[in-house]
Design a protein around this nucleic acid. Structure first.
Lengths: 133, 133
DNA sequence: CGTTTGCATTACGTGAACGTCATCTACGTG
DNA sequence: CACGTAGATGACGTTCACGTAATGCAAACG
């Protein structure tokens, strides 16, 4: 079962990131590739984490925030009290994200209205042709 | 109708930003406060724009992206072709945002599932008490 | 009338998130 | 065995989004 390991280059092509980025994420303890000699080999777990990192970034989370979120996904080996704390954090994050989605929905509705208005204006320009000119 | 003008300090308190931030946004042409002598006075329009800026930031848009979005909201005086182009951009943005909301929904569902799993683990720990110890 | 208060400008500093460049090593290949 | 290729390791550079003085001006206040 060593076939689910990927080199840094394969990772880069698959996820459209640079080697620098992957090394940077490792330095920041977001990824934990194993080493074969000097070379990094990225596991399935690293790939799952990277996907979440990239997703988090698209939502404007900082890498530090993302790191905390990531910890929610490998919680299995923690102590109970630690886990309870982790779950509390997860609940907060969940609230954040739901609030965020609300806001995003609002923004989308606003933009849609703007669009309808813009289209109306264009339509009227088309109809009046050289009205003002 | 000069009462809808706000000083920089009033703006800062209302929107919880620093003076530096507001001047920075002006320098980047995101806001256009009028001048009374040297002093900035922020209009209703500036406040509307600032709200959108802060919202955009919460979604991880760069200030430059936000500036483009903002242009969609004061489109009234543009030429027709400009407007059509602007509306095209708006449509793209709208698609972006809807895709983003989809993704956010997915992330929320994932996190909810994680939470349920975590709670289950804790419950089982509670039941088994000193099972492993 | 001196001083505080509020705002201005100018300019250098900073943390995050990488980019880039130089140098080094290990490995396969003709 | 020379050589290209892939990856590693510093270390310095860069962009974005402001923070943080330092300095100046102008109205307001005791």
């Amino acid at each position: 079962m060593t076939e689910d390991l990927m080199t840094i280059r394969e990772m880069c092509e698959t996820y459209e990131v640079t080697p620098r980025t992957l090394r940077f994420y490792e330095a920041k303890e977001l990824l934990f590739p194993i080493r074969e000699g000097q070379k990094r080999l990225f596991t399935k777990r690293d790939r799952a984490r990277l996907k979440l990192i990239l997703r988090g970034k698209r939502f404007g989370f900082s890498l530090e925030e993302i790191r905390q979120l990531l910890d929610l996904y490998h919680v299995g080996d923690q102590q109970k009290t630690q886990m309870i704390r982790t779950i509390e954090i997860a609940r907060e994050r969940l609230s954040d994200m739901e609030a965020r989605r609300e806001e995003l929905t609002q923004a989308i509705d606003d933009l849609k209205e703007q669009l309808r208005w813009g289209e109306k204006v264009i339509a009227s320009i088309n109809n009046e042709k050289t009205a003002v000119g």
